[in-house]
Design a protein around this nucleic acid. Structure first.
Length: 793
DNA sequence: TTAGGGTTAG
């Protein structure tokens, strides 16, 4: 637009680029007699014919897209009437130069030419195109004053303008007050409801227009098919298809494309494919609709094959929309390389800048593990929409970068953009993973403000978020208040109880969901088995695992095997655990070997730990957690050479321990602590409390692990002593900064260490307070010297 | 001699 303005600056300010006001050359009127006497009829007729010829030439330039020539001619015409102005305004509108069109309309008024019933439809359309509601309303007031508001064409353009500006209510008002309506009026309103996201009203209006004796045309059908797609209402789509056949519109290329798209969006890709196969293949839009249809119906390979066939068999070159539609297929297949080649092709073809394409690429990179590329693209984008922000936030969450996602969410508030349902749905998992309860409540409040309280998808995420923020009771309340619950709602509430160590309640909920007629799926069993594993319900877990295939016809996936392995690990029968891993029907992942490693550490079996670690490092050579765990085991066993071996491996690989931190909230403020943090707020008070607590539970804050380490390492390890680990600093501060009797809520980004777990149990007993620590996997409830995880995590 | 509604995309 900026370049267009530079090209036609005089329409904005009636001045030449040098700043001189444009003075239209006044060619003497040939019809005027030189002596000032009345012109004769012959001369007058000739003058009129010349004027008409110039207008016709102007119109011809505009129709053929030669706007530069049209402008030149217009500026050099001896006189211009409303017709000439209208034609030129039309030229700008048709080229999408809406600002210039409106400027020309303003200049027309300044030059004393009255806008007429032909002018306003173009000007109103320009206001719709540039999403300028205020300008549109001003133009509406002007045409009302001119008595043109009842003009059919003007009314039709007003309907579209208001709908485009998101004011379907005003569009409806104009439509309702029209004294005359034609098929275009009905179509504009049908399309208006559709753009406002109200497909049902569109479809109702399609029926109503027929009651009024109006026959739908190709435009009516195209909009109505869009409405059907929006509402996924196949029955209506089929009716419209029948109407298209009866009225001979089925072979209209745009109706045909809309039908293909409708069948895909309604999930009936088979019908779309049948129609597509018999359709003309000349139009790339139809191909694009089919490529998108395959990908949206989980047929990504067909999507790629369709694109290839389009190129090889029909010699059509993919456009930017083809690229956009292809990217979800790449993401589904995990074809990062193909996705990158789509990116490269788009660069070579000059498709950039293109906000939609860039956003689609960010989505693809986010899903395919290419967060670095997604971040790079986002940073380079010239223009970003809310959808672009949603995509980059989701990319961070999908790749476990929750804190960065929350940072971006905060930055979004500084933009002139308002977060929507997708933003909330994208960011909620990050809140669940790293936020404190107060922040969780804020995002819940914001979701309610956006009217998303009854959105199942959002509600499910909110339930999980409350559970992870240690507020199981609010999670339960929201769950039971939901008027409609889907299988995900049940899975989430089962998992919510599971992570709080309430495995028995998870089993009860599993039985309850079936009483309500909800069929469990693979995720239900994952939640259930995970709950059994956290609560140590070994027999129950085994029972449900065995029922999966036999009673529910669900094949256990690797995640289910992982849960059962945790269950076996609890029993301490590590040989059985090892055998279970080697006999799994799928290749064990690093996560599976990690489960065996955890069990080995828990039961002090260093040989089994080494065996598991060997497998983990062969799959993930940079697995820091594995190295840390094994080095701790070596240290505890006094195997210093092996300990140093692991440490040097870590140095060689450039692996650094994740910095653990704990967070807690007091009086609306968030406090964060790292291990042995001497710079935290209220440090002297916190260390004073910690000293008292440590003495109370029989721990010397300065020499906790002396016996476990060599004297040489004593000084080094003292600094790292678990006695001043972040979680204990947070607990110390929590005990004195929160109301007596209330639980102390802590969040920790890593798993709680054994020493701190043991200390937290004792502190809960000593202080008669409940201490809740949500670590990276489990919510530990420490009460009366015990923990809800039964000391296995 | 001029006008209004329209297909695929994040």
């Amino acid at each position: 637009m900026a370049s267009a303005l530079a090209r036609y600056p005089h329409f904005c300010n009636s001045a030449t680029p040098e700043g001189r006001p444009i003075v239209r050359p006044r060619i003497s009127n040939p019809a005027a007699a030189p002596n000032g006497k009345k012109p004769n009829n012959k001369l007058r007729r000739r003058s009129k014919a010349d004027h008409f010829a110039l207008n016709r030439a102007l119109s011809a330039f505009v129709d053929s897209g030669c706007l530069d020539n049209a402008v030149y001619l217009f500026e050099n015409m001896p006189r211009s009437d409303a017709y000439a102005w209208n034609v030129l305004i039309r030229g700008f509108v048709n080229k999408g130069l809406f600002r210039e069109a409106v400027e020309l309309y303003r200049r027309m008024a300044r030059e004393g030419i009255r806008a007429d019933n032909y002018t306003f439809p173009f000007v109103v359309k320009a206001c719709g195109g540039m999403l300028a509601l205020m300008e549109g309303e001003k133009v509406h007031a002007k045409l009302f004053k001119a008595g043109l508001d009842l003009d059919l064409y003007v009314g039709n353009s007003l309907i579209s303008m208001y709908a485009e500006n998101g004011r379907v209510d005003l569009a409806e008002k104009v439509f309702g007050e029209m004294c005359e309506r034609d098929v275009v009026s009905w179509n504009a309103m049908i399309s208006g409801f559709l753009s406002g996201g109200d497909g049902w009203s569109s479809l109702a209006l399609l029926r109503e227009m027929q009651v009024y004796g109006m026959r739908p045309d190709r435009y009516s059908l195209i909009s109505a098919l869009g409405a059907t797609s929006l509402e996924c209402y196949l029955r209506s789509g089929r009716e419209i298809h029948c109407w298209a056949i009866r009225s001979g519109l089925e072979s209209d290329f745009m109706v045909e494309t809309s039908l293909v798209d409708m069948y895909c969006k309604c999930g009936t890709v088979y019908y779309a494919e049948r129609l597509f196969n018999s359709a003309s293949k000349e139009n790339i839009v139809t191909w694009n609709a089919m490529i998108d249809g395959y990908a949206s119906n989980a047929l990504p390979s067909k999507s790629l094959a369709c694109m290839k066939s389009m190129q090889d068999n029909y010699n059509l070159n993919p456009d930017s929309i083809t690229m956009i539609n292809l990217l979800p297929a790449c993401a589904q297949l995990g074809f990062l390389r193909v996705g990158k080649s789509v990116h490269g092709h788009s660069i070579r073809k000059g498709f950039f800048p293109n906000m939609v394409l860039e956003t689609a690429l960010i989505n693809m990179y986010g899903i395919s593990g290419g967060l670095k590329e997604a971040k790079f693209l986002f940073g380079k984008m010239a223009e970003k929409s809310l959808i672009s922000w949603n995509a980059i936030i989701a990319a961070h969450v999908q790749n476990g970068q929750n804190e960065e996602a929350l940072g971006l969410f905060q930055k979004l508030w500084c933009e002139p953009l308002e977060p929507d349902a997708i933003t909330i749905a994208s960011i909620l998992p990050a809140f669940a993973e790293v936020a404190l309860l107060r922040e969780g409540r804020q995002i819940h409040g914001y979701a309610s403000k956006l009217g998303l309280g009854s959105n199942i998808y959002i509600s499910n995420s909110i339930i999980y978020m409350y559970a992870k923020c240690a507020d199981l009771s609010t999670a339960q309340q929201i769950f039971y208040k939901m008027s409609i619950k889907d299988v995900v709602s049940w899975n989430v509430i089962i998992m919510a109880h599971g992570i709080h160590g309430c495995g028995g309640k998870s089993i009860a909920l599993f039985k309850e969901m079936q009483k309500y007629g909800v069929e469990p799926n693979a995720s239900t069993f994952f939640s259930l088995l995970m709950s059994c594993s956290i609560s140590g319900l070994v027999d129950e877990g085994w029972g449900y695992f065995n029922q999966m295939r036999g009673s529910y016809n669900i094949d256990p996936g690797i995640e289910h095997y992982g849960c059962v392995l945790d269950l076996i690990g609890r029993t301490g029968n590590l040989d059985c655990a090892k055998e279970f891993v080697t006999q799994m029907p799928m290749v064990p992942s690093a996560r599976i070997w990690g489960s065996l490693l955890t069990a080995s550490r828990k039961h002090g079996n260093i040989e089994m730990a080494e065996y598991a670690a060997k497998h983990i490092l062969s799959l993930e050579h940079d697995n820091t957690g594995c190295c840390i765990l094994l080095s701790n085991m070596y240290a505890e066993a006094g195997r210093w050479e092996d300990f140093e071996g692991i440490k040097s491996l870590m140095r060689k690989e450039g692996l650094t321990k994740t910095v653990g931190y704990s967070m807690m909230e007091s009086r609306g403020k968030i406090y964060s602590f790292t291990n042995n943090d001497k710079c935290c707020q209220h440090a002297s008070m916190i260390y004073g409390v910690l000293d008292i607590i440590s003495k109370g539970i029989g721990v010397n804050i300065h020499s906790t692990r002396v016996t476990r380490f060599r004297l040489l390492d004593l000084a080094k390890e003292r600094a790292k002593s678990a006695a001043a680990h972040a979680v204990r600093l947070a607990i110390s501060f929590g005990l004195v900064s929160t109301a007596i009797g209330k639980p102390v809520l802590i969040r920790q980004n890593t798993r709680i260490c054994e020493d701190c777990h043991s200390a937290a149990k004792k502190i809960s007993d000593l202080s008669c307070r409940e201490i809740i620590v949500g670590d990276a996997k489990v919510i530990h409830h420490f009460r009366d010297g015990r923990c809800s995880c039964n000391d296995y995590w």
